[in-house]
Design a protein around this nucleic acid. Structure first.
Lengths: 180, 180
DNA sequence: ACGTACATGTAAATGGTTACATGATTGA
DNA sequence: TCAATCATGTAACCATTTACATGTACGT
C-alpha cells in the first residue's frame, strides 16, 4: 500500500511533538520545507495506517474534539530510529533546468540567458532567507548548547553552501554564454 | 495520459539524432545521466503517443527491421523549442539525507557519521568522474569551437561545482558532529 | 456577518519504476 | 553453443499531487 518516506517524515515529526495531521503539515511547511514537503493527501492515509499498525496512537484531549492528536508509540520510535540507520536510497537525477540548458542551442540565446537570470534571482532570495535564519541561530546561545543543535544547523548549512554554489555556477554559465 | 517531461526528453534526444526507443534509453544513460534519467516503461508509450500526434515519424530503413527508428518532424521541433522557452517548473524538495540528519539525535552519533562518510565517499567518486570528462573536453579543441559547446559544458560544470560544495558541506558537518 | 484559518478526509489524476514476456543478433 | 546485448512492449505497482467535499472556530 502507501509506503516509505511519508511514513518516516510523520514518525519524525511525532518524535519531536504530538500533533494532528494538520499540525504535521504545518511543521513540514514551516520548519523543514527547504528539504522536505508533504501534502494532506499523503499525510492522512499514512496517519491512519500508522495508527492501525500501532506505531502511533491518539492522545486523549478534552478540548477541541475535532482534532485527532497523535503521539508516537514505543514501536513507532523504534521503527523510526532503525530507519535513521538504514542507507540512503539512490535518487535518480531529474533537473529540468539542466535538460533545457543542454539543448540551449535550439532556443534564442537571450531566452536562455533570461531563464538563467530568473533562477539566479530566485536562488539569491532563498540564500538571503537562509542567512537570516542562520543569523538568528548565531544570536541564540541557548539553542547552541542544545543536543540537537548540530543536526538542525546541518540542513541549513547545506542550503547555504549548495545555494552559494548554484549562484556561482549561474554566474560562470551566464558569462560563458554571453561571451560565446 | 502520460505527460510532460519524458515527452521533451525524447524530443530533445531526437533533435540531436534519429533513433529507436532503445537508442534513446542508451543516450539518456550514457550522455545525460547525471541530470536526467528515463526508463523503457516511459519511453515506449510516449514514443507511440508522439508518433500519433505527428511530432515524430518513423524513418524507412532496410537493414534491421526489428528496430523502429524515429526522427523529429517540424511539428515536434517547434514544440520542443517552445518548451525550451517556458519557465522551469517548481520542484518541491525531498532530501532523505537531510531528513535523516535533521533527526540525527535519535540515532547513535557513529551511525550518523558513517552515513555522512559513505555519501561523501560516493560524491568523491562522482567528482573524479566529472573531472575526467572535463579534462577530455579541455583537450578537444574541435569540440570547443562547436556552437553547442557551452551548453554541453554547463551541466558538467554544474555537476562539478555542486559536488564540490556538497563535499565541503560534508566535511564541515562531520567535523561539527565529531566535536560536539 | 464575514473572512480566514483550522481541520479531516477522499477520489481522481498523474507520474514514475520495476518486473515480466518475448525473441533476434552478435561475438567469443 | 553460450552469454551478452539488442530490441520492443505491457502490466502492475508504487508514489505524489490536486481537486474536491465538508464543516467548525475565532477574531474583527
Amino acid at each position: 500500500m502507501i509506503k516509505n518516506k511519508t511514513r518516516y517524515a510523520i514518525l519524525g515529526a511525532l518524535s519531536l511533538m504530538q500533533g494532528s495531521g494538520y499540525d504535521i503539515k504545518k511543521f513540514c511547511d514551516n520548519s523543514i520545507s527547504h528539504f522536505w514537503n508533504e501534502n494532506y493527501g499523503h499525510i492522512y492515509p499514512v496517519l491512519a495506517q500508522l495508527e492501525k499498525e500501532g506505531c502511533i496512537e491518539q492522545v486523549n484531549q478534552n478540548s477541541d474534539n475535532r482534532r485527532k492528536v497523535y503521539q508516537s508509540t514505543q514501536k513507532g520510535k523504534e521503527e523510526f530510529t532503525s530507519w535513521l540507520m538504514t542507507p540512503i536510497d539512490y535518487q535518480p537525477a531529474r533537473s529540468e533546468l539542466l535538460l533545457k540548458l543542454f539543448y540551449g542551442n535550439f532556443a534564442p540565446k537571450d531566452k536562455i540567458l533570461l531563464m538563467l537570470n530568473e533562477v539566479r534571482e530566485s536562488k539569491m532570495k532563498q540564500l538571503d532567507e537562509f542567512k537570516r535564519i542562520e543569523d538568528s541561530y548565531i544570536d541564540d546561545e541557548k539553542a547552541q548548547e542544545s543536543e540537537v543543535y548540530v543536526y538542525w544547523v546541518a540542513p541549513l548549512r547545506y542550503g547555504i553552501i549548495a545555494t552559494e554554489a548554484f549562484i556561482k555556477w549561474c554566474d560562470e554559465t551566464i558569462d560563458r554564454i554571453e561571451n560565446k
